[in-house]
Lab assay of single mutants.
Amino acid sequence: TFELKGKVGKVVKIAEDHYLVEVEGDKWIAYSDEKLSLGDRVMVVDVDGLKLKVKRIP
């Protein structure tokens, strides 16, 4: 999972307290300090167990 840091993915689902992002064909639970929208491109900035911390990228 640490090899996911720096990888780019996209938001595929928005849940009440987390996001579902697809990175390299796999779906992961993710969270972010900013509000994300469906389809946003994101970069993995940290890995916390099986959850990814992501940030939006242009």
Rank of each mutant, 00 (worst) to 15 (best):
Val54Pro: 00
Pro58Gly: 15
Val11Met: 11
Leu38Ser: 14
Glu24Ala: 04
Leu52Cys: 03
Asp33Thr: 12
Lys55Cys: 07
Tyr19Trp: 09
Asp17Gln: 14
Leu38Asn: 04
Val42Pro: 02
Val8Trp: 05
Val11Asn: 03
Glu3Met: 01
Lys7Val: 01
Glu16Val: 11
Val23Asp: 01
Pro58Asp: 11
Val21Glu: 00
Ala30His: 00
Phe2Met: 12
Val12Phe: 13
Glu3Cys: 02
Leu52Asn: 02
Leu38Phe: 10
Lys13Ser: 10
Glu22Asp: 09
Leu20Pro: 01
Gly25Ala: 14
Val54Asp: 00
Thr1Met: 15
Lys53Ile: 04
Gly49Met: 15
Val45Trp: 13
Val21Pro: 00
Lys13Cys: 04
Lys35Thr: 07
Ala30Tyr: 00
Tyr31Gln: 06
Val42Ser: 02
Phe2Thr: 11
Leu38Pro: 15
Ile29Asn: 08
Gly9Tyr: 01
Val8Met: 07
Asp17Phe: 10
Lys55Ile: 15
Pro58Lys: 10
Lys7Trp: 01
Gly6Asp: 04
Val11Ser: 02
Leu50Trp: 13
Leu38Thr: 12
Leu52Ser: 02
Leu4Met: 14
Lys27Tyr: 06
Gly6His: 01
Lys53Gly: 10
Gly25Pro: 13
Ala30Trp: 00
Glu16Tyr: 09
Asp46Ile: 05
Gly25Val: 14
Lys35Trp: 03
Val44Ala: 02
Gly25Phe: 11
Ile57Pro: 12
Leu36Met: 15
Gly9Ile: 01
Gly9Glu: 00
Asp46Ala: 03
Val44Asn: 01
Lys7Leu: 02
Leu4Arg: 00
Val21Asp: 00
Glu3Trp: 10
Val54Ile: 14
His18Ile: 07
Asp33Ser: 05
His18Thr: 10
Asp17Ile: 15
Val8His: 15
Lys35Asp: 09
Tyr19Ala: 09
Ile14Gln: 13
Glu24Asp: 06
Pro58Ala: 12
Phe2Gly: 15
Asp40Phe: 13
Lys51Met: 06
Asp40Trp: 08
Asp40Thr: 09
Lys53Ser: 13
Lys27Ile: 06
Glu16Gln: 15
Thr1Ile: 15
Asp46Gln: 06
Val8Asn: 10
Ile14Asn: 08
Asp17Lys: 12
Arg41Gly: 14
Leu4Gln: 04
Glu22Arg: 06
Ser32Ala: 11
Val47Trp: 03
Asp17Ala: 03
Tyr19Met: 14
Lys51Gly: 14
Val12Trp: 07
Val45Lys: 07
Glu3Phe: 11
Val44Pro: 02
Val47Cys: 03
Ala15Ser: 06
Gly25Cys: 06
Lys53Ala: 12
Val44Thr: 03
Asp17Glu: 15
Arg41His: 15
Asp40Ser: 08
Lys55Leu: 15
Leu50Ile: 08
Ala30Ile: 02
Lys27Cys: 03
Tyr31Gly: 08
Glu3Lys: 01
Lys10Glu: 13
Arg41Met: 15
Leu52Arg: 01
Arg41Val: 12
Lys35Cys: 05
Tyr19Gln: 10
Ile29Ser: 12
Pro58Met: 10
Ser32Cys: 04
Lys13Met: 08
Thr1Tyr: 14
Val21Thr: 14
Asp17Asn: 08
Val8Glu: 13
Val11Cys: 04
Val12Thr: 04
Glu24Val: 06
Ser32Pro: 06
Leu20Ile: 08
Asp48His: 06
Glu24Tyr: 02
Ile29Pro: 08
Trp28Val: 03
Leu20Cys: 05
Gly9Arg: 00
Glu3Asn: 03
Arg56Ile: 08
Asp33Pro: 08
Lys55Ala: 14
His18Gly: 06
Met43Ala: 05
Val11Pro: 02
Ala30Phe: 01
Leu4Ile: 07
Glu24Arg: 02
Thr1Glu: 09
Tyr19His: 10
Leu4Lys: 04
Val44Glu: 01
Ile14Pro: 08
Val11Asp: 00
Trp28Pro: 01
Gly9Asn: 00
Val44Asp: 00
Val12Leu: 07
Glu16Cys: 05
Gly9Gln: 00
Asp33Ile: 06
Glu22Ser: 05
Tyr31Pro: 03
Val42Cys: 06
Gly39Cys: 04
Val47Asp: 02
Asp33Phe: 05
Tyr31Cys: 07
Val47Glu: 04
Arg41Thr: 13
Leu36Asn: 02
Arg56Ser: 03
Leu52Tyr: 02
Val23Trp: 00
Glu3His: 03
Asp48Thr: 11
Met43Val: 12
Asp26Phe: 13
Leu36Gln: 13
Val11Lys: 00
Glu22Gly: 11
Lys5Phe: 10
Lys35Pro: 08
Lys51Tyr: 04
Leu50Pro: 12
Ile29Val: 10
Lys53Leu: 10
Asp46Ser: 05
Arg41Ile: 12
Val12Asn: 13
Asp46Lys: 02
Ala15Met: 08
Ile14Glu: 12
Val54Ala: 02
Lys5Pro: 10
Trp28Glu: 03
Val21Ile: 05
Glu24Cys: 05
Lys5Thr: 11
Gly49Cys: 06
Leu50Ala: 12
His18Arg: 12
Tyr31Met: 12
Gly25Met: 09
Trp28Phe: 11
Ile14Lys: 09
Ser37Val: 15
Pro58His: 15
Val45Asn: 14
Lys51Gln: 08
Leu38Tyr: 12
Gly6Phe: 02
Leu50Gln: 09
His18Ala: 08
Gly6Thr: 01
Met43Ser: 07
Arg41Phe: 12
Ala30Gly: 11
Ala15Trp: 09
Gly6Cys: 02
Gly6Ile: 00
Arg56Tyr: 14
Thr1Gly: 15
Glu34Trp: 09
Asp26Gly: 07
Glu3Thr: 01
Val12Asp: 09
Ala15Asp: 08
Leu36Val: 13
Gly25Asp: 09
Lys5Tyr: 15
Tyr19Asp: 05
Val12Glu: 09
Leu4Val: 03
Val11His: 00
Val42Lys: 00
Val12Met: 13
Arg56Asp: 06
Lys51Arg: 11
Ala15Val: 15
Val8Thr: 13
Gly49Pro: 11
Ser32Phe: 05
Ile29Lys: 13
Val11Trp: 00
Leu50Met: 13
Asp46Pro: 01
Val47Ala: 11
Leu52Lys: 01
Lys35Gln: 15
Ile29Tyr: 11
Lys13Thr: 10
Thr1Ala: 15
Val21Gln: 00
Trp28Leu: 04
Lys10Thr: 12
Ile29Asp: 08
Gly49Ser: 06
Lys27Ser: 12
Tyr31Trp: 10
